[in-house]
């Protein structure tokens, strides 16, 4: 399922934070998006995931326009996101965090909570099994029963990824997966992303760590001040004088 962003505009308080932005993530693609602070990357994520309405242009997912649908509807179609600052359910355990993300649970309705005890139990057992498999995959076993508010920053990033995986995504918008994460864990997260991408999940990754991102993705987009500057292979994009100037403000 491909994601196509066409001529998207967004105004915030008189400033054009997204200016005619277009990009595409093909079905099962692994794409990076870079740009200095204030380039509009996070706003683009907010618009694409439905948390902020666009003021112009169009976002299409799996060849159908998303229109003005909200974040819940978009996530249900399989277009999911993580957040730059992780948002764990801090008073639930890591395992509960993942279990809460499983879609379409009968036990989450009032009726199911009261009258569908048997069916809900079987359903929950299956969900726990899936959650444990993902916890295992993400190496979170040591903190499985800890409160999510009490684990390290890097582990919170993994919890977010794990939650999204529980929700059966088709494409994931990853907001700075390496920020505040030690190099060893960065490599681990990269490996997870490669594995998941191999299973057909598409990724669009915003990241400031250009070295780690270049090793991970085959195609990069670069933004600055609300505009898309260029796209191409990581080597080409990072060598481009316009992109270099955006990052250094012309100092180099």
């Amino acid at each position: 399922m491909s994601l196509r962003i066409s001529n998207v505009d967004k105004w915030l308080g008189g400033v054009r934070v997204l200016d005619n932005v277009s990009m595409e993530v093909p079905d099962g693609g692994l794409i990076g998006l870079i740009g200095p602070n204030g380039a509009g990357k996070s706003t683009l994520f907010a618009v694409v995931s439905g948390f902020e309405p666009a003021d112009g242009g169009e976002v299409r997912f799996a060849d159908s326009p998303l229109g003005s649908t909200g974040p819940v509807a978009r996530a249900r179609r399989g277009l999911m996101r993580t957040f730059q600052v992780p948002r764990p359910f801090s008073k639930l355990t890591v395992r509960e965090n993942l279990a809460a993300a499983a879609p379409g649970q009968r036990g989450e309705t009032l009726w199911g909570a009261f009258f569908g005890a048997g069916a809900a139990r079987a359903e929950q057992a299956a969900i726990r099994e899936r959650a444990d498999a993902i916890i295992d995959f993400l190496n979170l076993n040591a903190v499985r029963d800890s409160l999510a508010g009490q684990v390290s920053g890097g582990q919170r990033k993994l919890i977010e990824l794990g939650r999204v995986l529980m929700a059966e995504p088709k494409m994931i918008l990853l907001d700075e997966p390496f920020a505040g994460v030690n190099p060893v864990l960065q490599e681990e997260i990269s490996d997870h992303i490669r594995t998941l991408n191999g299973q057909g999940i598409g990724f669009l990754i915003v990241e400031h760590n250009l070295a780690a991102l270049s090793r991970l993705v085959g195609h990069l987009y670069a933004m600055d001040r609300g505009r898309m500057l260029m796209d191409g292979t990581p080597a080409d994009v990072l060598a481009d004088p316009v992109v270099r100037e955006a990052y250094t403000g012309g100092a180099v």
């Binding site: 974040p71 819940v72 996530a75 801090s90 639930l92 993300a101 939650r163 999204v164």
Partner: peptide
Amino acid sequence: QAIRDDEVAVKALG
């Protein structure tokens, strides 16, 4: 309880 802890994250999960 997930809603209590972070409503935005609940929405992001659909």
